[in-house]
Design a binder for these strands. Sequence first.
DNA 1: GGATATATTATACATTGTATAATCTTACAT
DNA 2: ATGTAAGATTATACAATGTATAATATATCC
Lengths: 210, 210
Amino acid sequence: MEPMDVPGEGRMERKKRETRQKIIEVAMDLFQRQGFNNTTMEQIAEVADIARKTLYNHFPVKEAIVDEYVKAISKGLAKMTFDNLQNLPDTSTRLIAALDKAYEWVEINPEITGICLGYRLKNMFMGPGDCSGETATQSIMTEIIRQGQQAGEIRRDVSVKLMVEQLNISRGVIVLNWLKDPSRFELRKEMAKIVDLFIYGAIEREELEP
Amino acid sequence: MEPMDVPGEGRMERKKRETRQKIIEVAMDLFQRQGFNNTTMEQIAEVADIARKTLYNHFPVKEAIVDEYVKAISKGLAKMTFDNLQNLPDTSTRLIAALDKAYEWVEINPEITGICLGYRLKNMFMGPGDCSGETATQSIMTEIIRQGQQAGEIRRDVSVKLMVEQLNISRGVIVLNWLKDPSRFELRKEMAKIVDLFIYGAIEREELEP
DNA sequence: GGATATATTATACATTGTATAATCTTACAT
DNA sequence: ATGTAAGATTATACAATGTATAATATATCC
């Protein structure tokens, strides 16, 4: 999260990026200490020592701060995860492994996760058509599915994009259900169920080898 | 939508229900004429001739009005739909038929649909744990899946509740994607794809009869 | 009729998010 | 270097949301 140097960057762009970073630092600290709902944009602006309007220039709503923070975290995790996946035998296993990694973090940061997921879902619908903002986890899933297709394991008559979108929303719902009542079920087990349902479908399969 | 009589109901309960109905009528009319975003709670209260606070007592947020309206519509449609399903041969066909019926209405009322879906999704997550508010379409889907299980067509190792939840969210996403750019694809075709993906999964099936 | 519960109301308030125009800083070309 | 254009920050004002509190009206029940 440090404001490290970026080569082709003027003073202006750098300063803007620095205040952006500062906002995120300050805000996340306040969120952790007093909770998300008890922290106002006013307060964030004050602690970050900028005008409220400047804060709104960077982040149109409070949730957007959390979103950007989580994106960075997620990006870091993804890099670590991806290499380990190649050893695994099939698509199902790879998907579960990829998601498990992400959920270690989720389990530790439930509130942030909830805020972030809610915001992303809302944006997926109401937001503008910028589907550009792909999550790191999403691009990993895309890669896994594509590999599965090439290996002849995953069907080709449905686009990768659609499948990833569906799987992504499915896992979102599961996480949010878990957040509402963590004691009710184990996140990983539920996740494995979802992946299985996604891959094999709802149809009853006849056992080929009894 | 008329305030028809309900047998065991006192004057007080009736009056409350009547103002509730009036709010919905007035609000929906305003929404249709000037758009959802251009209509304020203030204005709704004024036209309905009640205090703003009373309005908030009935509906905590503007979206809730739309939600209740749509619930009523949906209930009406569901009743008409259900009987026709029994003639259809399998789960897949039944699901597609049930959803197609609902989407006739969706295609005519895109704005309302968008508001309503966004609200429901937000509530599914952030809202309180009252999963009681089951949609009419959801209960139809529940019934279809259950029948499928009994016929040995649908797997039994995953709960009906989970499957309906997943399918429901899937169709929600599809509709919202369609709303963002109706010209991009046909809603029904996309819906059939989703149902197929839900039933048969993402796995590549070997053709048994070539 | 009077006590009690509930719906409605008036009022005030903190917060959100937007709009406008002024001010300051950087970038760039002459 | 200097003036100008672009863009970032700011002060200020505003409409609207959603909540809290206490007062008032209305219905219900004994």
